[in-house]
Amino acid sequence: MTVLSSRPTNEELADLARQARWKIVETVAASKAGHIGGPLSATDVLIALYFAQLDIDPAAPQDPDRDRFILSKGHSAIGLYSVLALRGYFPVDELATFDHGNSRLQGHPDMLLTPGVDASTGSLGQGLSAGAGMALGAKRLGKDFHTWVMVGDGEIEEGMIWETVLSAPRFGLDNLTLIIDLNGLQQYGWPSEANDRFDRSEPVGHVDLERVFTGFGWNTLTIDGHDFDEIFEAFGRVSADRGVSGLPTVIISRTTKGRGISFTEGTYKWHNGVATEDQLETAHAELLGETGENR
């Protein structure tokens, strides 16, 4: 795992994240189908990974020594595709083919089709296990790369996640990092309660995830997943821990579903959705306009 010397500034990363968010909402609107809230909550961490953390080369997407990233919450594919396109894996214009027939950009990530996709996902709960296999393989082969897996907080309701959480410390996988995009909402979920952040109950709001993961033997970090300083602080601690604790790390990344666009933030109703012309105009102004409130 190489730490890049020419890391973009936080402002440059924030600008890239705004561009990615615009491609997400624009592409889904053009395709008339797709997810919004989950891709938008994950965008900042994805930008941070692909532009300043992962040891990757878009010109050599199959390099055996590259860092791996698995988007286990595969329905957020358009978020990953937007970041991969901006990073140079394929032309940004190709995003317009998302969900179209014969496209390399399927509704859920397909490793056989899309450059830069390290694992096919779409049925929730499977990516961490795939990442554990990659991390174990790296250990066995003496390879130095790091494997990152992102899951959603709704996704960790899947039982298979916990099979891997239970066993990963036994394999000594300090080259495996799980990022939980804890955006506080799932597609519909449970009715809201008094202490919830948004308009439905948080998927795991009743669970102390730090204690749970610590109890399972993981290194546990909690960050604001929209704050680049906190994101890189966590990434730095992951790097520093390699070869030290011998344990996998979980980064609990607290985020806001639908982050970055006023009408999509903090509501389950934009889990998926197709923006109207007016809404697109609003989103564009907020993300890329000269006076956008998020600029």
Binding site: P64, D118, A119, G125, Q126, G127, L128, S129, A130, G131, A132, G133, M134, A135, L136, G137, A138, L141, K143, G159, M160, E163, T164, L166, S167
Partner: peptide, 22 residues
């Protein structure tokens, strides 16, 4: 490789290993 009584995780880890040439 013992993976314990966790068949779903077993398949996932096997897939991950296979991507590295195993």
């Amino acid at each position: 490789i013992e993976v314990g009584i966790a068949e779903q995780n077993m398949v996932g880890m096997a897939f991950g290993l296979s991507t590295l040439g195993y």
